[in-house]
């Protein structure tokens, strides 16, 4: 006979961690909002983080955006060639990049690079009692650690995505003119004529959500490291996986949301 299955225990175990995560992040978010409204505000820490998150991620973002744009132009071009659809490539590439590929790929790259960095840095600070020291010296880890990182992501990600949008379309143009024999000037004009502000806003609007999806789990998993160095690695993995999943699943709902908003406008 097989072991009796303890269903309630199984369910509790299965859902305990996600629920803890949701509750924990909600509390962290509440404290963050609360402490954002009180003095002091550490501007120099924010600038440090903007540099670390933004400037340091730029090469990665540029390469990702360029290759995405190039590959898309190639695939659309070769795929549509049979139907004589090549002239639509600029429009297709542009709107796909603006709406989806720019924001999502940039955010995923940032989740990997910045999310891992934040979670492991904060986790190590917990293990070496630096977070305790922040509190023991009468200052707030939320103000010193969480707020600069969340704000940096909120400021930097939209900018990076805007740059990625430009570079991605440039990659499309390069492939369009070299591989698909589309005139570069024609390609450029088509992009400008066909893509509109709505495309841009639909993608750009998501980046603020994605920034939160990256920063909050990374801070949360870093701060909740408990017993020693081994957990820092686990926290890092959890931060990256959680941020990536939130971006990918959140993207669907946000896309729907922005379609609804567009219809309104």
């Amino acid at each position: 006979m097989s072991e009796p299955v303890d269903l309630p225990a199984m369910i509790t175990k299965r859902f305990k961690e996600p629920l803890e995560f949701l509750g924990g992040v909600a509390l962290l978010a509440k404290d963050t909002v609360k402490e954002l409204r009180t003095r002091p505000f550490y501007g120099s820490l924010l600038i440090d983080q903007i540099y670390l998150v933004g400037v340091k991620s730029l090469p990665l973002v540029l390469i990702t955006a360029l290759s995405t744009g190039m590959v898309m132009a190639l695939q659309y071009g070769l795929g549509l060639e049979k139907f004589g659809g090549k002239p639509y490539v600029p429009r297709l590439v542009a709107s796909t990049i603006l709406r989806e590929m720019g924001p999502v790929f940039t955010s995923l790259m940032l989740a990997a690079r910045v999310g891992a960095g934040m979670a492991s840095e904060i986790g190590s600070m917990v293990v070496t009692q630096q977070i305790d020291a922040i509190r023991a010296l009468g200052t707030s880890p939320i103000k010193k650690i969480v707020i600069p990182r969340v704000l940096a992501c909120l400021i930097v990600l939209p900018l990076l995505v805007s740059i990625a949008n430009l570079v991605g379309n440039f990659g499309g143009l390069m492939v369009g003119s070299s591989e698909l024999n589309l005139d570069a000037q024609f390609y450029f004009r088509r992009v400008l004529e066909t893509s509109n502000l709505k495309d841009y806003i639909a993608g750009f609007g998501k980046t603020f959500f994605f920034a939160i999806f990256i920063a909050m789990p990374s801070c949360y998993f870093g701060l909740t490291v408990k017993n020693g160095t081994k957990e820092v690695g686990i926290a890092t993995t959890k931060a990256v996986v959680t941020a990536s999943l939130l971006i990918l699943t959140g993207d669907f709902f946000l896309s729907k949301l922005f379609w609804v908003i567009e219809k309104w406008l």
Binding site: Q129, Q130, D132, A133, R135, A136, G138
Partner: peptide
């Protein structure tokens, strides 16, 4: 709460086991 503890923490210092310096 954390805010009310600030004056206490100015008055009571904690020398951590490993120093806990900000690296």
């Amino acid at each position: 709460n954390e805010q009310q503890l600030v004056p206490i923490r100015k008055q009571v210092a904690y020398a951590f086991q490993g120093g806990a310096l900000f690296d």
